[in-house]
Amino acid sequence: MKEHKTTPTQEKVLEGMDKVYENLIEFKKKANSDLVVMENGKIIRIKPSTL
Rank of each mutant, 00 (worst) to 15 (best):
E11N: 13
L51T: 07
I43Y: 06
T7V: 05
L35E: 00
T6G: 03
L24V: 07
K5I: 06
N40I: 03
Y21H: 07
S49E: 14
K30H: 00
E11L: 13
V20E: 03
G16P: 01
N40Q: 14
T9G: 14
V37Y: 06
V37P: 06
A31T: 15
K42M: 04
P48I: 04
M17V: 05
K19C: 05
P48C: 12
K2G: 07
H4F: 12
K42I: 02
E3W: 05
A31P: 03
K28V: 12
K47C: 04
K29T: 01
N40V: 00
S49Y: 09
K2N: 10
P48N: 04
R45K: 15
L51M: 13
V37E: 02
T9R: 14
K2P: 14
K19H: 03
V36Q: 11
K29R: 12
V13W: 00
L35T: 09
Q10P: 00
E3Q: 10
M1F: 11
R45D: 08
M1V: 13
N32P: 02
I43Q: 04
M1P: 09
D34S: 13
V13Y: 03
V20C: 00
K19Y: 07
A31I: 06
G16N: 08
K47A: 12
N40T: 08
E39S: 04
S33F: 10
P8E: 12
N32Q: 14
D34C: 08
H4D: 05
P48D: 08
K28G: 11
L51Q: 06
K29I: 07
K12E: 13
S49K: 15
S33P: 03
I44L: 06
M38S: 13
N23R: 05
V37L: 13
K12V: 04
F27Y: 10
D18S: 05
E11P: 02
E39C: 05
P8M: 08
M38R: 15
H4Y: 13
P48R: 09
T7G: 09
I46A: 05
S33Q: 15
L24Y: 06
K29Q: 09
L35Y: 00
Q10E: 15
D34I: 02
E11K: 15
M1A: 15
L24R: 01
K19M: 09
M17Q: 08
K2E: 10
K30A: 12
I25Q: 04
K19G: 03
A31V: 01
M17A: 01
I25E: 02
L14Y: 06
K28T: 12
K42H: 03
T6Y: 12
Y21D: 02
T6D: 05
E22L: 11
A31H: 13
K30L: 07
E39A: 04
T9M: 09
